[in-house]
Design a protein around this nucleic acid. Structure first.
Lengths: 205, 205
DNA sequence: GTCTATAGTCGGATAGAC
DNA sequence: GTCTATCCGACTATAGAC
């Protein structure tokens, strides 16, 4: 956890193993001993984040994947999309996951081996599920660019609240995105998802 | 430019003035001499980015601000929203501004004095213009939370393509977001903006 | 203004005692 | 496994020649 915080806040190079060891109440030499070095610790953080995300999003994703083959009507499909977006929002906006978000955003800008572990784990699964749902909605191949890009924009709306965190706080006059603020965000996200889904549906063959 | 690239890629602490000076073909000692030190150089980068964004977004923002008081119909207002979102997308997705995006995203996650300069300059002006347009669209006070949050999600969709850059490339099978890819992104952004605006309009008093 | 040389600090890794 | 002591490299800033 100390390493997640430090790497997320400062990046790989600027974070110091000395500070991480001290924050964790551990000895500096324990890092090379247990993780094989600073880089090993960094990858261990990526794996821990991937596991944590899968743990939190697992139930929602499992339900979608399980219910997918049973032919669903559009209302049910839309509800699944809403659940997925909302699940991501609630997972990524919790105070405990702020450090995850910083770490992931860094890896997005400058991907390393750690990004592969994050992408091939939780991210790909979420994107695949969302594309499947949107494809059914639009009556089109989920692998089509338009569907995939729409999926990115839906998840992107959520990500933006972390990526543009300081701008959100400044604009809204908030000091944090707590439970109360989260309710307002959720209402707007739901409205947007519904609007975009409806537009997709209108274009369906 | 060398400093923008280095600070954007590595962050303030990890970027070295040695590497920046070498990349710029300048002498190491020139940095303390001309900018007062590493921190002064960092703030100079922030100011340069703010000025560059204002330069690129200025015409679009000026037109919106000038035309705002002349009572506009909804079609014109929607067109202005589309122009603003598209302008931001084209500004922020150009290869030349990739370094800006990395710098800004870092400041969003961990704001310093540099963020204030970015926010009070171009960001606030864009957000104010967009809230004004959306407020008129929805027939509501532009200062209402719902309007401001909707504005954040609209700009957030654009930001997401930079913030989740690696995930976008991996999902789309792209190697970069060039002009061709940009056209596809633009079409989806336009559709989303139209859908969200229409939903706002339906809720208008 | 521009450069070299250097001072002073802090980084990660490791040797070796326990 | 855990700790202290230490090595060696890289960093920013500055003194001082030109």
């Amino acid at each position: 956890m100390a390493a997640t915080e430090a790497f997320g806040r400062l990046g790989f190079e600027a974070a110091s193993t000395r500070a991480i060891a001290e924050a964790a109440g551990a000895n500096l030499a324990a890092i090379p001993y247990h993780f094989g070095g600073k880089e090993g610790l960094y990858l261990a953080v990526a794996d821990a984040i991937a596991a944590g995300m899968l743990e939190r999003m697992g139930p929602v994703l499992g339900a979608i994947e399980a219910g997918f083959n049973a032919a669903q009507d559009r209302a049910t499909t839309l509800a699944m999309v809403q659940t997925l977006v909302e699940g991501l929002a609630f997972t990524m906006m919790r105070p405990e996951t702020a450090a995850w978000a910083r770490f992931i955003l860094r890896e997005q800008a400058e991907p390393t081996e750690a990004f592969t572990r994050l992408y091939e784990g939780p991210m790909k699964r979420m994107l695949t599920a969302l594309c499947g749902l949107l494809g059914r909605f639009a009556g089109r191949d989920p692998a089509k660019s338009e569907i995939k890009l729409t999926a990115m924009t839906l998840l992107g709306q959520v990500i933006a609240f972390r990526a543009a965190h300081a701008a959100v706080l400044a604009t809204m006059g908030w000091t944090e995105i707590g439970p109360g603020e989260m309710q307002e965000v959720r209402a707007v996200l739901q409205a947007n998802v519904a609007a975009i889904a409806q537009a997709l549906e209108r274009k369906a063959p």
